[in-house]
Design a protein around this nucleic acid. Sequence first.
DNA 1: TGGGTCATGTAACCTGTTACATGATTAG
DNA 2: CTAATCATGTAACAGGTTACATGACCCA
Lengths: 183, 183
Amino acid sequence: MSLKHGLLGLLEYGDMTGYELCKVFNDSLAFFWQATTSQVYRELSAMEKKGWLCSGEVIQSGKPNKKVYGITDEGRSELTQWLARDLKKSDVETRSAFLMKIFLSGRTDPRQAIENLRAFRDIHVQELSKLEKSSAIDTYGQDMKDNLIPLFWGLTARFGSEYYRMCIAWADESIRILTEVSQ
Amino acid sequence: MSLKHGLLGLLEYGDMTGYELCKVFNDSLAFFWQATTSQVYRELSAMEKKGWLCSGEVIQSGKPNKKVYGITDEGRSELTQWLARDLKKSDVETRSAFLMKIFLSGRTDPRQAIENLRAFRDIHVQELSKLEKSSAIDTYGQDMKDNLIPLFWGLTARFGSEYYRMCIAWADESIRILTEVSQ
DNA sequence: TGGGTCATGTAACCTGTTACATGATTAG
DNA sequence: CTAATCATGTAACAGGTTACATGACCCA
């Protein structure tokens, strides 16, 4: 249920539209969670039905009207309970289609695996620089002692950048090994 | 479609039952892909309908009968095509409910976050030692130059152990930061 | 005139989770 | 005697993906 709770958490910082929530996911949380617009809109209406959110329409001129969502007390208590739940193994498990491909690459030309590794490396180099730019902006001028929000954002962002660095180093080493073996 | 292709890939090494495939997933691939029995059985019958697999029953005495699956030529060509497809960004994206929790922990007692971090750390310490044990067994005595399969298994396993190490170091550092801030 | 941003969604489909169901054998 | 292992699945539900649909405004 992480998407629902992620949306609840973001709405605690202020009311937002589905469109704005999508942007936050794609701009700031993309390295540990992705969400498409269709999914976000679906989850928002499901959560409104449950009573976790309420919404109001904002009439705009020159632009389409907005549907702004806000968190209710029920939503807040649901979020609190979710945060307090003990960590399960499934909360930390991840899946990677990429590693599946590498794992099965023994039956094809190693050059294909090298190409995949290079693409993997390039994606992570790009993501790392994106993340470092956004981290610099988001924590700029924030006082860590007064507000715990940028502190926790910083922890997750540091996870992201260390993960990307590890991926890049691993890919480089793997490319080196495969290049050596395949001559 | 990684689960389907993962199953195809495993069946290339030899015919297996659904039960055995589940065990391989849970014992060897768990650090980058998880699959439950219900999912595996469903995918196997779907793939048989598509013509990627064929099956035969093996009668056993004292034990329940087995349904052994084997890969067909169609299945093999599907796997080859999948391996040759260009890497998309979604192939490398991962999701983590745990990081979502940490990200949203600014609104609760930091001690809860510390507890979650400790649980995260412990799980990864455990997984690392499991993985290192199985890596030692699986590559023992294999000749890397003759057979590329253990080579690629080694690459993914190295990814796993480096990932776990990174997680443990990050958790330790995060616990340190939070402990300092929360006194 | 074409592409990007703002803003909303629906529908169909595929994939993953949880709970349930059965039943024999073997090891401690 | 009880728990684990072998071996199969079904059903319902939750979550994620892909494709489609609309329409106005702004900037180059």
